[in-house]
Simulated scan of single mutants.
Amino acid sequence: MDATLAGIEHETDGLTVRLRPVAEPDLAMFRRFVSEPGLIGLDWSGYRDAGAPARRFAVDGYLGADDGRLVVEVDPERAVGIVSYQAGRYAGPAGYWEIGIALLPEWRGRGIGWRAQALLCDYLFAHTPAQRIQAGTHPENAAEQRSLEKAGFQLEGVVRASEFRAGRWRDAYLYSRLRDDPSPWPAEAG
């Protein structure tokens, strides 16, 4: 994903949310996500290699052709989390993107998450031919369910026993947004 990120932002009620490429100073936040239990909420799956973020950054700056990460930033230029995208394929040319988000705890519940996910969809639809973007979440994560719905996603159903977490297999809710679905932005926001 080498297309420009200019214009990937949304401002409302005095809050500007933008997406930007990962920069070297952001790697400290990335290391926190892989080394601090509970920082990413229910998605914690155990300790991971704290050196992996720097190695990946050195390869492609987290802007790979099939997956990547962008930093979620709010004014005044403060990194508050990340969004991710990963290519998937159902059959033949039916490619899609699976997206995710991780915000630092102190930035949750402020309307940043849904805006960041909607911006990521806009970016992927503008720069790739994908017809479908999907996201999964935990049945107990009501805040993320509301966030996805505000970002224009629709619930498709339950994916049974799709994740091993905290010692057992758990279900997930699958959401999707299609290229032709209505925009979540108010008409005046573009």
Rank of each mutant, 00 (worst) to 15 (best):
S35Y: 05
E36R: 08
G38M: 10
L39K: 05
Y47T: 05
A50I: 06
A52N: 01
A52E: 04
P53G: 04
P53V: 06
A54P: 03
F57M: 03
D60S: 03
L63R: 15
L63I: 00
R69W: 11
R69S: 12
V72C: 12
E73K: 06
P76T: 12
E77F: 14
A79I: 11
V80P: 12
I82K: 11
V83T: 11
A87I: 09
G88M: 06
R89V: 14
A91S: 14
G92Y: 14
G95T: 13
W97V: 01
W97C: 09
I101A: 11
A102T: 00
L104Q: 10
E106Y: 06
W107S: 13
W107Q: 11
R110M: 13
R110I: 06
R110V: 05
I112C: 10
G113S: 06
R115E: 12
R115Y: 15
Q117C: 15
L120D: 00
L120E: 01
D122E: 15
Y123T: 01
H127L: 08
H127E: 09
T128E: 07
A130C: 11
Q131G: 11
Q131N: 13
I133S: 10
I133L: 11
A135V: 03
A135M: 03
N141G: 02
R146T: 09
R146D: 13
S147H: 06
S147V: 00
F153A: 05
Q154M: 05
Q154K: 15
L155T: 02
L155M: 07
G157Y: 03
R160F: 03
F164Y: 12
R165E: 02
A166K: 09
R170P: 01
A172D: 11
Y173I: 02
L174A: 09
Y175M: 01
L178K: 04
R179E: 10
R179M: 13
D180P: 02
D181A: 14
